[in-house]
Design a protein around this nucleic acid. Structure first.
Lengths: 124, 124
DNA sequence: AGCAGACACCTTGCAGCGCAAAGTACCCAC
DNA sequence: GTGGGTACTTTGCGCTGCAAGGTGTCTGCT
């Protein structure tokens, strides 16, 4: 079963930033990357990824530059800005916090609030 | 830094189900539970939790019953239905898948696609 | 008596995000 | 000349979290 859209909210942004943090890339390839390298868990279309890229660019978290190719249409490459790198770091932190909280509440044992859990996170 | 709303999308639902899976409870207490037992990571208000509860009830995932109390107003308790229990299981699976994917893409080393990661999840 | 504050519930309206759908355009192979 | 792969774009819908505002009860302080 593929992942439902609702719990993806906001995390697509983080994944794109993480991908672009490794190396500049372009929309079409990012879509392939996400779908192929997620064991079939993700099934994102272009209609999802492109708008996110546009949003990120408008917010100056990434910048774009066109590159000609031998085959087919030119590609619009994206690269992280400084602000993007910073946001990625924040998002990593956010994600870590969420994992911590979800783990606590989802633990079947129900030992939420056991203080062992409450030191590792969100010191910021 | 508290968690931003966007990445909470859908997960609040799962947390509520998980809480109610342990024991029936009521809105006001659930709000306290979430905020107190999350090391300050969550700062959810009643305006967030009550609508979710209503939604869940409409979808027949939980049922409610009023209980009188000695102090103050009566409480509206919620309890999981069979469908709710089933959805919780699904949501756990969804969450596990998301964690797997996010871990893969967020790993700084960039070794996404290393096949060690690709066995644990989403067999459903 | 009056008032604050904890308890407990509810609703409206907005903003953000994912995504399906539909469209444009180029190239290659048959 | 048509089908399919590459590549980018946009519009509009639905769902979700949440801020803001509101109702009502009881306890305790002054």
């Amino acid at each position: 079963m593929a992942i439902k859209k609702t719990i993806l909210d906001g995390n697509v942004e983080t994944m794109l930033l993480a991908i672009l943090d490794r190396t500049p890339s372009y929309g079409y390839e990012i879509v392939r990357l996400l779908n192929e390298q997620s064991s079939g868990v993700l099934t994102l279309g272009e209609g999802t990824v492109y708008p996110v890229l546009h949003r990120l660019e408008q917010r100056r978290l990434i910048t774009s530059f066109w590159e000609k190719t031998d085959s087919g249409r030119p590609r619009k490459y994206y690269r992280l800005t400084k602000a993007g790198t910073k946001l990625l770091a924040e998002n990593r932190q956010q994600w870590a916090s969420l994992v911590q909280v979800m783990d606590a509440f989802l633990s079947p044992s129900g030992n939420v609030g056991s203080n062992e859990l409450l030191n590792g996170g969100a010191s910021v």
